[in-house]
Each structure stands twice: as structure tokens, then as C-alpha cells.
Computed example of a mutant assay.
Amino acid sequence: MPRDIVLVIFDGFQLFDLAGPADVFATANLCTRSDGYRLRVAAVRAGAVPAHNGIATTAQVSLAEITGPVDTLMVVGGLSVPGRLRDRELVDGIARLAGSARRTASVCNGALLLAEAGLLDGRRATTHWLTAGELARRYPGVEVDADPVYVRDGDVWTSAGVSAGVDLALALVADDHGHRLARDVARGLVVYLHRPGGQSQFSAPLRALAPRSEPLRELQAFIDAHPAEDLSVPALARRTGMSERHFSRVFTAQTGLPPGRYVERSRADAARRLLETTDHPLDRVARECGLGTPETLYRLFRRHWRTSPGDYRRRFHVKES
């Protein structure tokens, strides 16, 4: 019996969120020379549904027309998702189908639709790094982890942003048929079977809040511009004319981060920029960022991005002219 995969779309969805997973399942069929997966695209109403990029995709069936149980319900994401949370036909349709599905999944910020349908309460989940804060604020019952490329919690799977839908679909294929088939599919599509590191390596620089106090804003700018300086709490407190204890309390209250953690994040971002834009050896990168040694640089990258500085450079290096 083929496994029935229902992919849910809506006006303004992200086309890659649909096409990536769909091609993984279709390629699995080619590799096995079978119809192991049957793909159906569904929407509130059947017919042409425009993606955010303007390309229309045909939803073969409406959500209401699907009456029997499905194997996998997968909800895609898109820039229009926040506005779709008020679409009761869409949200209620997702909730109904999930009730009879063997497993439910979301791609990117499609996790917001799962959460609105009550499917993520008490579960660990991920989403696009840009949406993780919104997911946590809107749905405090969800344990949001912004770094993994995908998360499985029981029969509910969620993925990070956009292309991570491919990683998620490969994991579903591996869960169904084993890693050998998933590996063959990955090879055919020329993608990683297991992407190195988490999605945070693709995120914007690690920023804190801008302080209300002008002296602290100036100090924040100094830290970001001079990562190799003495940025210890005593040195920073002296710059502001405060006691160490008072400085630490005020800085943490206004930026949301203790001074030491802010300095570490600032140095980590400085290291990322140097790895992306220069050919400096790792010992020079570490020195210029105030990290001292390549070993400290390595530990920092492992802690923040679960990858090594060398791997990060190979993926993101674009030398400035």
C-alpha cells in the first residue's frame, strides 16, 4: 500500500517548502521503482494556489474532501503564514486531518499553523530562526528550539527554514525505509543526508537589545568594534564609571545579556565575519577577535553553531574585493 502524503498549501506559501519535500518523496519512488509514496497537494479549496513568488500550483483536492486517514500530513510555510492563522477553514482542516494522520509535519514557519491548531502544545519544536521568537511568544506551551534543522517529538515533526524541508523529508524516508534509501535519495538530489551543524550558522549576527542609556550604547559599539581589547567586566565597568556590580546589573537589564555573554557573542560574530571575508589563518582570526587561540575559536563555534571554523569558512567564504 502506498503511503499517502498530503501537503497543505495556501495563498502566499513558499514554493521551495512544497517542492523540496515533494521531490524527496518522488525520488524515493524512483529509487525503489515503486509507488511507495502517493503525493497529494491540498488547500482550503482545490484549484490554482499562488505561491509567494507568483508561481501558481494546483491543489488537487480541498481539505474538506479528504475524509479517510492519511499517512503523513505536511504543512508548508511562507511569508503569508501570520495572516493565515485567522483562517479557521485552514487551521481547523489541519487539526482534523492531523487527528487521523500517522504523523504530522511542518516546514519552516508552517509550525505556527500546527501550533494554532493545538498540535504543538507540550511538545518540542523548531521553525525558521527568524520565526522562533514569534512561535515562543504566541504559543508559550511549545518548547521552541531554534537551532536544529528538524525536530521529532513523538508523531509530530517540525523543520527549520525553507530548504530544511528537504532534510525533514529525508529523515521521514529514513524512518520509513532505512538510511540506505535516504542516502540514495540524497545522492540523487545532490544534498546532504545529514547537514553539518544547526540552522543557527545561517542566522543573522547574534544581537542583544540596544541599551536605553547613551553611555551603554556607546560601550556596546566599542565592544563590537574592538573585539581584541580587554573586555573584562572590570575594564568595561571602568569605562562607564560604575562599580562592577552595578555595571553588570544595569548592562544585563538593558541588553538582556550579562556583559560576559555579550562579549562572547560579539567576538563570535567578529570571527564569523573574518572567516567569511578573509583568508586569515585561524590563529590570526582568533587573535583579532580576542579569543586568543584556535582552540578557543573552535570551542566557540562548536558551542554556538555546532560546526568547526574550517567547515564554516568552506560553506560561507566570500572574499571581499
Rank of each mutant, 00 (worst) to 15 (best):
G83L: 13
H179R: 12
A270N: 04
L275K: 10
H246D: 12
R84P: 01
A43V: 10
D4N: 09
R239P: 06
G77Q: 10
L135P: 01
H52D: 03
V142I: 09
V250F: 11
H128D: 04
R40N: 08
E89A: 00
T278D: 11
A111H: 03
V151T: 06
F25H: 13
H177K: 07
Y298V: 11
V151M: 04
E320N: 03
G188Q: 02
C289Y: 04
G47W: 05
E320M: 05
G260L: 11
G178T: 04
L79Y: 10
A64T: 13
L30W: 14
A204M: 15
A221Q: 15
C31R: 15
A22E: 04
L85V: 08
L300I: 09
G197L: 09
A125L: 05
R187H: 00
H177N: 06
V173D: 10
F301A: 08
A204N: 14
E143T: 12
A64E: 15
R315P: 02
V61N: 08
I94M: 00
L73R: 00
G99L: 13
L79S: 10
L130D: 14
A268L: 07
R88H: 03
A208S: 06
Q60T: 06
A182H: 00
I223D: 02
R261P: 01
D176I: 09
L300A: 13
M1R: 09
V142G: 01
L274H: 08
D184L: 04
V61Q: 12
T293A: 15
S100E: 12
A98E: 05
A48E: 05
R195V: 08
F10P: 00
D92S: 02
T240I: 14
D17Y: 09
D175Q: 15
R302F: 02
G93K: 01
L7H: 01
T32Y: 04
E276H: 11
H280P: 08
L113K: 00
V191F: 01
R217T: 12
R313M: 05
Q60W: 13
E65D: 14
R183C: 04
R84E: 12
D23V: 13
A48H: 06
